[in-house]
């Protein structure tokens, strides 16, 4: 009986691990393959704040009415939040993002930075 339970535990762990790994690789594969002219789209509480193409290096201080802020830095084709007023700093610790669908979320400030595909340029389509 107990042995059976241990076996079921292992099966459960194995299945979950495989599903998670498969999902992880599928997601990173599709994200990489689908990213073209990425744009970092910033939304605050579901309202769009601004769009920043990843090819242009910029620094944007996202200010909220209550005085809190997130500092978005775009460099080398990647978007990263390097400074923020939120207490947990999860958005600051998050890696820089560059692939379509990736996002950095600051839950306390309700700020979401998400990578979307930009307009497809003809030049890229040809050289592809």
């Amino acid at each position: 009986m107990e042995e059976n339970k241990k076996k079921n535990d292992l099966i459960l762990i194995g299945v979950l691990l495989m599903v998670a790994l498969a999902a992880y690789f599928c997601i990173s594969f599709f994200q990489g393959a689908n990213t073209k002219n990425g744009v970092a789209v910033v939304t605050i509480d579901d309202a769009e704040y601004g769009r920043f193409p990843l090819v242009v290096d910029t620094e944007e201080r996202i200010e909220l009415p209550d005085g809190s802020y997130n500092l978005l830095v775009i460099q080398d084709g990647k978007a990263d939040v390097t400074e923020a007023s939120c207490p947990d700093g999860i958005c600051v610790n998050h890696r820089a993002i560059s692939k379509q669908g990736q996002s950095i979320v600051c839950l306390p400030n309700k700020v979401v930075v998400e990578i979307e595909n930009g307009e497809e340029s003809d030049l890229d389509a040809v050289t592809n």
Binding site: L21, Y24, I27, V105, V112
Partner: peptide, 14 residues
Amino acid sequence: VKTASLVYYLPVLI
């Protein structure tokens, strides 16, 4: 936050 792409965090969190 009405951002469905948070689902991408799930594999790592699982």
